[in-house]
């Protein structure tokens, strides 16, 4: 595939880096070249957090995202920093709980109930990162559900594989539904 560049942005502790690692794992399973990197503040919880993934069938030299193809934002602050001024060619996915205020866009914009769906299904916000991963994977259409599923299975913390696979499924469905609505 042509080079695809992803930014996952939010707050420290939301699990975005793990979600990005899972996306990268899935790309490796798909036989692609991939790099994944992150930046975060000194805080383990709270503070801005950003994870990046680049997937390509060619060698990847410079390992940072220069022009994203897809941005995921799960905090208002992250949205302001990475999502607000994006070209409309770039896919933007936000969580409708933590990013309540968004500028209207005509294309490639998905405000999804990632947190709400997680809370309803699991009674807590844990695994919202994997719900988000599911939505990203479905909307980006670069990887198969089976590839991402395998990545989640391998990378999920001990004892959480089932829950995270369920979360992935939910996110994937959210993504598919959103794509359908966008077409309609």
């Amino acid at each position: 595939m042509a080079k695809q560049q992803f930014i996952f942005s939010g707050t420290g502790g939301q699990g975005l880096i793990l979600a990005a690692i899972m996306l990268a794992d899935a790309a490796v399973l798909a036989g692609q070249n991939v790099v994944q990197s992150q930046s975060y503040g000194p805080e383990a919880r709270g503070g801005a957090s950003k994870a990046e993934v680049i997937i390509s069938d060619e060698a990847i030299n410079y390992p940072k995202v220069q022009k994203p193809d897809l941005v995921l934002s799960i905090s208002q602050e992250a949205y302001k920093k990475y999502g607000l001024s994006l070209d409309e060619e770039v896919v933007l996915i936000v969580d409708d709980t933590y990013v309540p205020e968004t500028k209207p866009r005509s294309r490639n914009f998905y405000s999804l109930p990632l947190t709400k769906v997680t809370r309803t299904e699991f009674g807590s916000e844990q695994s919202a990162n994997v719900v988000a991963l599911g939505a990203v994977a479905a909307i980006s259409r670069q990887l198969s559900l089976e590839q991402v599923r395998e990545a989640v299975r391998q990378r999920a913390p001990k004892g959480t594989a089932d829950r995270n696979l369920k979360a992935l499924e939910l996110g994937w469905q959210l993504g598919i539904g959103a794509l359908k609505r966008a077409k309609a």
Partner: peptide, 9 residues
Amino acid sequence: EVVGHLREK
């Protein structure tokens, strides 16, 4: 730090 923290295939 670039290569130390980079994940790559």
